[in-house]
């Protein structure tokens, strides 16, 4: 079994009208099966409202499935006695950088998680230092988070999770509120964690260019897994992605348009280099 496994997970919530009468039931997550290996870089794509964030909250027991089971490192998330072990194993970074930083000083914020799980003082300092270095924020350790850019704040959030020594980090649209430079910074930091520290990464996003380096991509729609495969396999299906309210990188789209006009090109071109090679220039 992988680090994270879900079996037939369903999450329903009841919509009520103003008087509290049941209006209907929405299935935000509908029969999802995942099996994620330790050390993988996984991307979950989907348009707004596709259920990807709801699914993400199941992966560290913030939400519990209505039906089905989620296992984190072999622990069932419905098992209350394992709750804190699960949250320590699968850390979570959220979308809005302002709403997840608790500390007034960068280093104090990164220390918050280790404090909660009872790490001895001396080790907290070691963990804070190594985590801040891993995301390239060590020189900002004495700064107030309010003075940092969005990308820097999000890297502090990642360090805060990293300091709890998780095996897996779930990032729920960590770049949605950032500018292009902030996005690049954060993605670079995330890739570093995966490559260097060997942490399993589950990145939830709707920016296509962020998933090119993923080992595996899941695309969600209406709570279901609509597509799964390597980035190349996913990007080969331009029309299907467009129907799912998504996009492909410009280079992929360009190659696809040329293909349609009869130019011989392989499916799912991801980089300019590949494109030029395929054209035999």
């Amino acid at each position: 079994m992988g680090i994270i496994k879900t079996k037939n997970v369903v999450y329903e919530y009841i919509r009520r009208d103003e008087d509290g009468n049941v209006e209907g039931i929405t299935k935000a997550v509908d029969d999802v099966n995942l099996d994620i290996n330790q050390g993988d870089f996984i991307a979950i794509l989907g348009h707004n409202g596709s259920g990807k964030s709801t699914l993400a909250k199941h992966l560290n027991a913030i939400l519990n499935p209505t039906e089905g089971t989620v296992w984190v490192d072999g622990m069932d998330t419905n098992d209350e006695s394992q709750l804190w072990n699960i949250r320590q194993t699968a850390g979570m970074v959220f979308q809005n950088p302002d709403n997840q930083i608790i500390g007034q000083v960068v280093e104090e914020d990164v220390g918050f998680g280790p404090e909660n799980i009872g790490v001895p003082t001396k080790e907290i300092w070691e963990r804070v230092e190594e985590s801040l270095r891993a995301v390239g924020m060590y020189q900002f350790r004495k700064h107030s988070p309010n003075k940092l850019s969005g990308g820097q704040k999000q890297r502090v959030s990642i360090a805060g999770v990293l300091a709890m020594h998780p095996k897996c980090i779930v990032l729920d649209e960590p770049t949605a509120m950032l500018d292009p430079n902030g996005r690049k910074e954060v993605i670079r930091a995330i890739r570093g964690l995966n490559d260097v520290e060997g942490v399993t990464v589950i990145l939830i996003t709707h920016y296509m260019e962020e998933i090119i380096h993923a080992d595996k991509v899941f695309v969600m729609d209406q709570g279901k897994i609509a597509m799964e495969g390597t980035p190349r396999e996913i990007f080969s299906q331009v029309e299907k992605l467009k129907n799912l309210r998504l996009d492909v990188p410009q280079i992929t789209l360009l190659a696809y348009e040329l293909q349609k006009k009869g130019i011989l090109l392989p499916d799912g071109i991801l980089t300019i280099k590949e494109f030029i090679q395929a054209l035999h220039l």
Binding site: I62, R87, G91, F94, Q100, I102, G113, N116, V161, M164
Partner: peptide, 12 residues
Amino acid sequence: DLAMAMEARCYR
């Protein structure tokens, strides 16, 4: 959001 983030970081 903050409550959720704190719980996710094992605050109890």
